[in-house]
Write a protein that binds this DNA or RNA. Structure first.
Lengths: 324, 324
DNA sequence: CTGTTAGCGCATTCAT
DNA sequence: ATGAATGCGCTAACAG
């Protein structure tokens, strides 16, 4: 491949001038500018972007850390990030971690190595110390409540959201309430668990371990939940479900087991994914795409050195349908 | 940030030696090796990966071109690519194109600029000429039938798959058949349309334009289809649906309009996404994750200069459930 | 407006 | 086994 020096030679100018026209720099005489473009055409030249990255010390690439790309929750966030990144001429490098600490660290290392200019962590399992240790290498925004830590964050208050859900269920007369969640670790999960416990305490009910279903992520996990429920002597009358996907699975498999929703089991879930509308599931709308957009913007602003808010909380709202 | 030269100075060796120990090169005396690692620790040093990329002329990054990240069809492919890429130490750079030619070209340009070592095009709208023009800059694999062109490809024969579906519907007694598709352009879509027409011809039926539903991608598009169907004087008795998502929408919204499936409308869809199992939709299993894996492998092999097949066809199979 | 030059940080060849 | 020197291709400060 040709390089800038050859272009300079053919166009009869210096490399600096070539660089100038290539980058749309103003003060270049018309004829020289044309000569450069002609040479570019002739040699079918394109910049070697790695040289640009090295020389400029930045890449215009943002890293996106997430456990699974194939889950609507995350792919919706990524879509939001992607749309915004495109607008500002940034690209996205994906780090699928499967919640393995090793992979999360590797991703962070890429920030230190200057592979990416900034990082958006959609979900993590790594401790705070690590994240904080890497922020000196570039902006890192987390999609969770960082609880006062000096880190960028765009988040949903899952304690509030879960509490809202619990209160709604209780208001509807439920007292035997269980919940389904993707994992039990992680800020968001801990917050939800706390809300669950606090809400139960208010009505003098104690949490029942067998009504808490872990590893609930996909539709098929709803099937598992239904089966476990079917085998129980005493079932909850309502379930708070952290993902519409799982809720859909529960509704569908539950119905094929003869349940009526909400009479036999009430379901209140999260996300407001289109599947919940199709199934008329009452759900909590989470602004995931917006979360992605805002996460990107926060990074972008930090590049402009603008004074920017460190953390932004996003609002949720209950979409009443007929599963409760 | 410290660089290799500083490490060399502190460790009392040359930069070449530093480079050697950093890259696990064998012939370096134990003591020097230790000295280098100590200096690395001391300065909290990490390689600048852009310099590495420039010096080596490669990045270990693969570009992934797709229209939308937020559709299960594509995110499943990406997941497959991602898993395999990780195993071989590659990263993924995402190019969400929304089927805009401009963005597709920009993505291809990144191959020429050496931002990525290879490219996987999950779906495109750009003409063949463009793709072929860029293959000299690195391996490009397409997830579609390239029909004898000299391009890498991992694909599903959608003519066969659609024909299989049509024959199944016909065998079940249907003659008034319509179909839903994501878009009408694109190799895959054209192949499916051809199969649709050919199958109808065999039973002396002629295609009906109003039974062909375009822009069907997501669950909510199923709602639109149901509404359009509801407004028709003469409806098809069966629908071939190119995505389980849309099929789910049709089944769900159709049921809420009082339809019985399959009596009032039979549905045969594609993907075998878990949602189809939950709804007992008869579907054609498409090995999307495997397609992603194979696509990556094909690129990887081309780096090894292995003799490799240019195109690989993946098999589909019908999953009989109860929507037909 | 334009050219010269010095980096950016690492890999690698060639001697020794 | 190790160091010196060169190259990767581009940007940007500086001089004019």
């Amino acid at each position: 491949m040709a390089n800038i020096r050859e272009i300079a030679k053919i166009a009869g100018v210096s490399v600096a001038t070539v660089s100038r026209v290539l980058n749309g720099y103003p003060y270049v005489k018309e004829e020289k500018r044309n000569a450069v473009w002609e040479a570019v055409e002739k040699l079918n030249y394109t910049k070697n972007i790695n040289a640009v990255h090295l020389a400029k010390g930045k890449t215009s690439i943002i890293g996106v850390v997430l456990p699974y790309v194939n889950h609507p929750y995350f792919s919706t966030i990524v879509e939001g990030i992607s749309i915004e990144a495109l607008r500002y001429g940034y690209h996205l490098l994906l780090f699928q971690t499967n919640y393995e600490e090793k992979k999360e660290i590797e991703a962070l290392e890429m920030l230190k190595m200057k592979q990416v200019d900034g990082m958006i962590i959609c979900s993590r399992t790594l401790g705070w110390k690590f994240i904080e240790a890497y922020k000196e290498y570039g902006p890192i925004v987390l999609c969770e409540d960082v609880k006062g830590r000096d880190l960028l964050s765009v988040y949903i208050n899952h304690y509030e959201a879960f509490m809202l859900g619990m209160e709604y269920l209780i208001e509807k007369g439920h007292r035997k309430i269980g919940y389904c969640i993707g994992r039990t670790t992680g800020t968001n999960s801990k917050d939800r668990e706390a809300a669950y416990r606090d809400a139960l305490r208010k009505i003098n009910e104690s949490p029942r371990q067998e009504w808490i279903f872990d590893h609930c992520l996909y539709i098929e996990d709803g099937k598992r939940v239904v089966n476990e429920l079917l085998a129980m002597r005493e079932k909850p009358t309502a379930l708070l479900v952290s993902s519409d996907q799982v809720a859909a699975g529960i509704v569908l498999w539950g119905q094929s087991a003869g349940w009526r929703i909400p009479e036999d089991l009430a379901i209140l879930s999260f996300d407001n994914h289109p599947i919940s509308e199709a199934l008329q599931i009452t759900t909590m709308d989470l602004p995931l795409s917006i979360m992605g957009k805002k996460a990107f913007r926060m990074i972008y602003h930090s590049f402009q050195n603008n004074e920017t808010v460190k953390a932004e909380k996003l609002e949720v709202r209950l979409i009443e349908r007929s599963s409760v």
